[in-house]
């Protein structure tokens, strides 16, 4: 079944400075939606507002039904923050049990975790730690997932595998992601929104990205 999450009417101010004011963003089952923007434009704030952990005026609708407390219902929406969020003392066994995921499938996809079922997350490298966090958010049973800088700390091989995972998983859920690795974002995203001066712009062609001052296309080709 196809699900659609829409967010708009968002007003966010810090110290009388408008951070977000003219927002419309939509993500849906079967698509990976990218949110790009320069540093400090409010991408993370927007994700936290949609998730509900940052309070402000907002309207979040799932399948046209208002959802004021999305963060209280993991079956609807899960969120990967840009920092490590799993308590360091927890073992992989405990984490996979908590999220009701099959470790053998994870191990099959990422063989480097073969002997680490009983290891605590604290004993993993930065890349492995991020991979576990990303995997549990992407594979858990929810209608939507938001990923804030999912490729941070990952090696090129891990990124390739993650891209494969996201492409597979988008048939089960709507995915919104933000990352500065522009090439990867454009490679996997079906839709892209650019956040500039508190407003979202739906990108119809790559030239718009340059016109809106996010990047120079010649520098990324």
């Amino acid at each position: 079944m196809k699900h659609i999450l829409e967010a708009d009417s968002i007003q966010l101010e810090f110290d009388n400075r408008k951070i977000l004011s003219d927002i419309y963003i939509k993500f849906e089952t079967g698509k990976i939606t990218g949110l790009i923007g320069r540093n400090g434009q409010g991408k993370t704030c927007l994700m936290q507002i949609i998730y509900g952990s940052l309070k402000c005026e907002r309207s979040i609708r799932i399948n046209k039904i208002n959802q004021p407390k999305t963060f209280q219902i993991p079956e609807l929406l899960m969120y990967l923050p840009q920092f490590n969020f799993i308590p360091k003392r927890l073992s992989l066994k405990r984490i996979f049990n908590d999220f009701e995921l099959d470790y053998s499938l994870f191990e099959k996809r990422f063989p480097e975790f073969a002997s680490k079922y009983n290891s605590s997350i604290n004993n993993l490298s930065g890349g492995e730690h991020r991979l576990v966090e990303l995997y549990i958010i992407v594979k858990s049973k929810s209608q939507f997932a938001m990923l804030d800088e999912p490729f941070t700390h990952l090696s090129p091989i891990q990124i390739e595998k993650v891209i494969e995972l996201l492409k597979e998983e988008k048939s089960n859920k709507g995915i919104l992601l933000t990352d500065h690795m522009f090439n990867h974002v454009t490679e996997i995203c079906d839709d892209i929104y650019l956040l500039v001066n508190g407003k979202t712009h739906f990108i119809k062609n790559m030239e718009e990205i340059e016109k809106l001052g996010y990047t120079k296309l010649e520098s990324i080709q």
Partner: peptide
């Protein structure tokens, strides 16, 4: 505070 996201993702 960052670890609260773990529990929030579990509902």
């Amino acid at each position: 505070s960052k670890e609260f996201y773990y529990y929030q993702n579990l509902g």
